[in-house]
Design a protein around this nucleic acid. Sequence first.
DNA 1: CAGTTAGTTGTGAGCACTAACAATCGTTTC
DNA 2: GAAACGATTGTTAGTGCTCACAACTAACTG
Lengths: 341, 341
Amino acid sequence: MMDVARLAGVSHQTVSRVLNNQANVRPETRERVLEAMRQLDYRRNSAARTLVTRRSRTLGLISFESTLFGPASMVYQVEQAAREAGYFLTIASVRSLDRRAVLDAVDRLREQSVEGIVATAHMPAAGEALAELPAGLPIVVVGLGAAAATRPGGGIVPSVATDNHTGALLATRHLVALGHKEIRHLSGPVDWPEAQDRVAGWRDVLTDAGLPVGPVLAGDWSARSGYELGRLLARDPDMTAAFCANDQMALGFARALHETGRRVPHDVSVVGFDDVPEAEFYLPPLTTVRQDFVGLGRRSLDVLLAQVEARDSGAAPAGAVTPTLITPELVVRASTVAPPD
Amino acid sequence: MMDVARLAGVSHQTVSRVLNNQANVRPETRERVLEAMRQLDYRRNSAARTLVTRRSRTLGLISFESTLFGPASMVYQVEQAAREAGYFLTIASVRSLDRRAVLDAVDRLREQSVEGIVATAHMPAAGEALAELPAGLPIVVVGLGAAAATRPGGGIVPSVATDNHTGALLATRHLVALGHKEIRHLSGPVDWPEAQDRVAGWRDVLTDAGLPVGPVLAGDWSARSGYELGRLLARDPDMTAAFCANDQMALGFARALHETGRRVPHDVSVVGFDDVPEAEFYLPPLTTVRQDFVGLGRRSLDVLLAQVEARDSGAAPAGAVTPTLITPELVVRASTVAPPD
DNA sequence: CAGTTAGTTGTGAGCACTAACAATCGTTTC
DNA sequence: GAAACGATTGTTAGTGCTCACAACTAACTG
């Protein structure tokens, strides 16, 4: 910085002013400084800046180590939104979602002095861990949904999620409307709030319609788990439709049905959840519930930045923040038809 | 830090020594300091540390904004490897792979004073952009493969990639061995080195076997592009097999064949590339070439850290680094059989 | 018992930057 | 024409940490 100042014939403070786009610098001086910067290929040392301003302009992302479409797109959405707001993004991935792993990740990010954290970590253990955090640290949890966690201060951990309950409603009602009576559900891991909300939505529709509610078979979001549950369920002669907790499980499920001689959709209708880009090209093309992952990412960053800025301007942290829910949308394709006869 | 020192009754320097696990601190003093840290929930200010040591202990990842399985798993692999080596990871995603976008991303990372960059950016424009970087900045490109870029200093941009040529060889030979004569190829975007290498492998096998080499149909890695090319190719009555540039394209391709009444694998055999977790559950389960994404991520970080450490210890940067290639593996499933009659 | 040594702890400077204040200059106002 | 003002630029201090070096302590040597 001194070098730039010397070359431009000004003081380092003027260089700083130019760097931060402050007013009150004569245009020609500004130009001289910019030219000097260009010549020296200067770029500011953000460590020094962070040190003195006490603002790192960095956000942290805690991401469950998953290559599923949802979490993966979240990374990019959040980074892009962060960049547009002038923040850097550091990531901390976690292999498992137990309390310890999540707290470790938070610690790593805190050491980096991030100004806020986006956590795409869903299990209750994760929620609890996050609730334990120092009250000052802005955070938003993606996907916690209705199961919002309360923090020691009494506030709620702000969260943004797809309205999974409504999504499940949409999917199940669609099957009911087609005339199905025996509608099964392949759920995600029972301790994930997302999975729970989808189970609840499915159950609510069946109960309202006076239809039998079968046992819930839980998988782990993977196609393999859908396949394995499918092999089990294929023995159930009454089933004419199934709502799967995500598209991958639906894929595995359809494959298992196919192997056991039951055709999709003629014998069994299948609905997924997510609408991954491939779902349209499955055989048959999958009816599914589309989540707005782009909106989820953007919205969560909005919520986070609101906290960051509130803290920065010394405002009291907003009290009870209600969880933000984003409504998903049913996409009807070829995997669902009326039941046979 | 001063607070900790005061509480433990030592100087700030002793606290620093404990913090950095330096020797020559009496065990009981160390314990006292650690206890004080715990009591105050102290964590070091990494900005100050970076400022004085001139080492940020942060690496940067430039990632093409893609939710494909490969790029997505790379993020986690790299983060994990970085963490284990004691580095933080900052990400900069790019929407498009033109020179400008890539250079912007590099700039953002440099402003963060990252010590090295992993770029999962593949197009020649990206390669060129990276080749222009200041010689001092450690970098590794994932996926550039044989098309290594040279830097102004004369060195080669170090790269780690799947051996795509060999992968294509494996896939195509498999089809030839089954007795196919008319083997088509659906490639990725022609300007991606990965796509080019796969095209070359396919062509080499056909030429060696004296089989006809049809036109190359280029897609964009998406299932949709596979589908669209499939609609076109379905009119080709001679075709009995196709090698697709990735699994998603293979999926779309199979769907198009199905729609036009040609059965996979009975009428047309299909091979993919990647072995995404779902490939095993496609209908039919997909024969494909498995890429070792875990190895790719780890290996690229090894290569990067070697440079970072060399620079740190003042060693001359290694001269001509040969690109590291990781050999993929053929996974035979149900989508390939001998041609009809 | 002085002199050396190794182990441990403390002191001062400086990293690159910004905030706060001080100084300069030309212009306006009365 | 002096005082006041606003715009621009400069000076100083301080951010939390590590490095280099200094200082102290206890043990050992001749």
